[in-house]
Design a protein around this nucleic acid. Structure first.
Length: 423
RNA sequence: CGGGCCAUAGUGUAGUGGUAGCACGAGUCCUUCGGGAGGAUUUAGCCCCGGUUCAAAUCCGGGUGGCCCGACCA
């Protein structure tokens, strides 16, 4: 992508109405733009990050959980919610059809996916089944806050699993923990995201959250260093100890964290409500056992920014960075463009990297000073910065800088690919 | 939903009753250009409604919106 043509611009100053670091950096870097509180547009850079996160999730759910991706509607008939008693949930947005039918905007999709599954699931042979989607959710939060961390409209992955019995469900649930662990590791949050015990509500003793440690988080968890798990405030309040090893509350470390995902057993709560059942080998009918697994993409993106930044801007983990390489040309002073070797070398490197499948943002802007380009590169936070200038070309080299370590080396242009693929 | 702070140009700000200013951005020109360059010139603004006053960005009332704290968060 030529940066001269990129939609969105960096801002020199922090927006005055954003305190949250994630919103500040994402807005200044040109990743997102705020529409109203808790509702953001994703610009080209931000969308690329969001899609990277989404594809990591897809890969993991497809491979580890054999789940299948679908896409369900955002508009839901309220009748389905009346069947489950969730029509009274206060975060629901309500609307209606021109013909008068009442609708709600989806905040979760049990009321859609269960009737959907009922159309096709009738035998034990149809189970187990995992269905997921990545889709916009709507929650009429009383207070949106913390930038992308708590929005009123947000992209979420929601997975629903269907099982013949408890045992099969539990097996899948444990696999889901592994899949989630893999996902958070891949997006660069692995070292500070903890499986956390939370209340199971009415249908189970526990559910589990995935909590990323950050002071920007709105939850308080208790960390058991020994078990490497967290315990949610509501659980610790009841039990005063680690549910896994029994360590006393006083031995646990109190931390601020943001809930980036959750998984929980639904048992038969929704299958009962919609009559979702199957017939076993002996012709007997049983309710389907369900689990539900959520993961907020925007929230993950915000959490990554909260965790990976310095005073100059974002430091994207390579797996989710909008581009792998930020190629910067610094044109030579006192030379006509046609006499300047810099754009030619930079342009060739750009095309060579593209041909090898490397994602490159090419800062070809001719009217920006070096300082401005470097400041933008730091802010945007692409992992590898490559500078082509009169100075580097005088040594027949280009400069390679790692955003995370700050290490700078001079290498021949043709060695860049090898350097960034085997650093 | 309770409480607090706030609302001036695309962004950040100054202006506390008397002609709305500055910086950045954006446009044009010149000189610059390896860490947010300099000069010239142009562009663009008082959230909305009502009230007080000769006169309101400024004071008062009511909206709307934003941020923060709390409550809430299947």
């Amino acid at each position: 992508m030529l940066q001269s043509e990129l939609f969105g611009k960096t801002l020199r100053e922090s927006p005055k109405d954003e305190v949250a670091k994630n919103a500040d950096l994402l807005i200044r870097g040109g990743f997102v733009a705020k529409e109203i509180a808790g509702i953001y547009s994703f610009l080209p850079l931000g969308l690329r990050v969001l899609n990277k996160i989404g594809n990591i999730i897809r890969h993991e759910l497809n491979e580890t959980l054999a789940a299948q991706e679908i896409l369900m509607p955002a508009l839901h008939p309220i009748e389905n919610y009346e069947k489950t008693g969730r029509d009274k949930i206060d975060v629901l947005f309500h609307t209606e059809l021109a013909s008068g039918g009442r609708l709600v905007l989806g905040q979760s999709h049990e009321e859609i996916v269960v009737p959907l599954a009922r159309r096709f699931v009738s035998s034990y042979r149809d189970l187990p089944l995992g269905l997921y989607q990545i889709q916009t959710k709507f929650r009429n939060e009383l207070r949106a806050k913390s930038g992308l961390l708590r929005g009123r409209e947000f992209i979420m992955k929601d997975l629903y699993s269907f099982h013949a019995d408890e045992k099969d469900f539990e097996k899948y649930y444990e696999q889901a923990k592994i899949a989630y662990k893999n996902i958070f590791a891949k997006v660069g949050l692995g070292d500070r995201t903890y499986l956390t015990f939370a209340s199971g509500g009415t249908f189970s003793k526990y559910s589990h959250e995935f909590q990323t440690l950050t002071d920007a988080g709105e939850d308080t968890i208790y960390l058991c260093e020994k078990c490497e798990i967290g315990i949610n405030n509501e659980i610790i309040g009841e039990q005063k100890k680690c549910p896994q090893c029994g360590a006393a509350k006083e031995k646990l470390a109190q931390k601020k964290a943001i809930e980036v995902g959750n998984i929980f057993p639904l048992k038969t709560r929704f299958s009962d409500a919609f009559g979702l059942s199957y017939t076993d080998e002996e012709g007997k009918k049983h309710p389907v056992i369900m689990g539900c697994y959520g993961l907020g993409l925007g929230r993950v993106m915000g959490a990554i920014v909260e965790v990976h930044n310095d005073k100059n801007g974002i430091i994207w983990p390579e797996s989710v960075a909008p581009y792998k390489v930020h190629l910067i040309e610094l044109r030579t002073k006192n030379l006509e463009l046609s006499d300047d070797p810099v754009p030619g070398v930079a342009g060739k490197l750009y095309n060579d990297l593209l041909a090898k499948g490397v994602e490159v943002l090419y800062d070809d802007r001719g009217d920006k000073t070096a300082g401005e380009k470097f400041a933008d590169a730091d802010l945007i936070g692409i992992p590898w910065r490559v500078v082509v200038s009169e100075k580097t070309l005088s040594q027949r080299m280009v400069e390679l800088k790692a955003r995370n370590s700050g290490n700078v080396i001079l290498v021949p242009a043709q060695n860049i690919y090898q350097r960034i693929t085997n650093p």
